[in-house]
Design a protein around this nucleic acid. Structure first.
Lengths: 320, 320
DNA sequence: ACTGAGCGTGTAGGTTGCCTACATGCAGTC
DNA sequence: GACTGCATGTAGGCAACCTACACGCTCAGT
């Protein structure tokens, strides 16, 4: 019967290290070491060394060279999948702790499209003022299909979808619909159509338009109008920024589309509801499941839901 | 919209650290820092510092002074419980990895009572010879109720129970019955009872006995005999070690009890089955659930089950 | 075929964090 | 009231992690 010696010589890592699991998961998600390095604010060299020590500890190859970059081995993929389980488990325990101490804590990162952020975030900041939650914000204006990828970087991604209830590509993510926001027609106050309370596709199809780039969510509506009426929509411009669009509409460049809640019309332009075609967008909060385990993240999401509901309620009082 | 700065100043620990969770669990299980320090081969000072950094990271008090030692706060207990979840999760992923690479790896620690180890472990060592599993062994001869506590220290505790199917105190543990081993009467070959093939309580109650200390598992059998026959068993000696007991039986100090599989009778003594009273013990492998998640631990346990089955099979061929 | 850009890997060196050794304070025990 | 055992500080050694920098490789463009 031998005795207890050579403790950490044999089983050098008593447990699998979450650090290594997370690294593998990031590699699986982002594809290249360089991308992970940028996202985690480290050098590729550091990651490469981490991989080597992980491989030494586990006595398993985790990555293989693959043309320019690397590819996970089957063992590496296995661990990358297991990472979700472990990290969710850690976050779940942390959430229980936060709940027991009463107050959620920590930093929550939010990425948002500008228009939704403009209407949701001021209220959110007000609500979080006296809490132990701090926010980190980022904004971007991207195609609908690209929102899901941002959930790698931010705890909560505020995205939108014209086509469906949630954006495409959000399958593995927690999604929470914050509000359903009508998309109105914006036009100069002296425009002929400004006298009508509501506008139909046939009303608007033959006027000049200020549109958005192809593939951008809002473009789905003029496309639907073209299909419905069988006539082409003439876009004089294609712009990304809503405020720029609004000012050009006011200058007579044409009529356009703007989300109702996020727009406080400038003098000289008015909003008119568009009926007879689906003209609204979902504002959706996306989170990767393990991030959503954190109490602070859930709390912020719940605030956003509440703020979104206020928007819809406030509108119906004001206009209905 | 502020930007991404102050990464690790705010959320100093991106995740809850398994290191801290495990420490809390150990404190919950062993009661004092000093005990944990001894078990993990560290100094109490190191643990104290770990606790302080954990408390600083989490902004929560985890332990309180309690007379001579410390006591976990509610938050500390919460995390100690969560540790099981997290560590099991880690071990589960590790097990999947081990299974995928084909061979279980690593060091498995076994604590055993000597008699069972004597019969099980040689065979086990033979089976593990060409594997990547290494063993760390410890042995102890303790009261039945104390086996469960050893599962804190060893991956697998080979214990026994006369009274029940499993030892008392093994509630939260994975238990696997390896074999059911008859307890035979050992007596000198020239003893009057040696001519009989089987012995009853009435046969043996009026002879001198060599017993074990009170509270030791085997003592349950003479106690049962006393209750059944209504007459006292006269113990000339109380001994712990089976081989010493056997040699004194051979020297005429009395008759005794020995487990059948673990005993290869020396010249001068013989074994006779005891009938009419429950005279057998379960040999049981105990493991803490998170330790049992490891593939190597399961593999070794399965080997032990197989070896235990061979023992019972071999006996029935020989004697049945 | 050559050049440049992007990616991963190695090496050297600085910083951080963990641990041991030792000393101190404190609570029960004989 | 001395003794024992436990927890907690402090100082210093040692290992781990990371950055900076250089190099080899692959693919794309000229």
């Amino acid at each position: 019967m031998q005795s207890h010696s050579s403790e950490r010589s044999q089983q050098h890592a008593r447990y699998l290290e979450p650090r290594h699991l997370e690294l593998l998961r990031e590699i699986a998600a982002r594809g290249t070491l360089a991308a992970v390095a940028k996202a985690t604010h480290r050098t590729p060299s550091a990651l490469s060394q981490q991989l080597r020590t992980a491989e030494r500890d586990l006595a398993v190859k985790l990555v293989e060279p693959d043309s320019r970059g690397v590819r996970l081995t089957p063992a590496g993929q296995l661990l990358a999948e297991g990472a979700d389980e472990v990290i969710s488990s850690l976050a779940r325990v942390q959430a229980r702790l936060d709940a027991s101490t009463g107050e959620p804590r920590g930093s929550v990162s939010i990425g948002t499209l500008p228009s939704a952020g403009q209407v949701l975030l001021p209220q959110l900041l007000r609500r979080l003022r006296d809490t132990a939650i701090t926010l980190t914000l980022d904004d971007f204006d991207i195609a609908e299909a690209d929102f899901a990828a941002r959930a790698l970087d931010a705890d909560i991604v505020i995205s939108h979808s014209i086509s469906g209830r949630v954006p495409r590509g959000a399958e593995g993510l927690i999604n929470t619909v914050l509000t359903r926001e009508p998309i109105d027609v914006v036009l100069p106050v002296e425009h002929a159509l400004a006298t009508k309370a509501e506008l139909t596709p046939h009303d608007v199809v033959d006027h000049d338009w200020v549109g958005v780039p192809e593939g951008y969510p809002f473009d789905a509506i003029p496309v639907a109008i073209e299909q419905l009426t069988g006539r082409p929509v003439h876009r004089t411009l294609r712009l990304r920024d809503n405020h720029l669009l609004e000012s050009l509409v006011g200058a007579g460049a044409g009529i356009g589309l703007l989300p109702r809640f996020s727009t406080r019309p400038a003098p000289g332009v008015v909003l008119r509801p568009l009926v007879g075609v689906s003209a609204s967008r979902s504002i959706v909060a996306l989170s990767r499941p393990d991030r959503y385990e954190r109490l602070a993240v859930r709390t912020v999401t719940e605030h956003l839901v509440s703020i979104g509901a206020e928007l819809m309620g406030g509108y119906s009082v004001q206009h209905g």
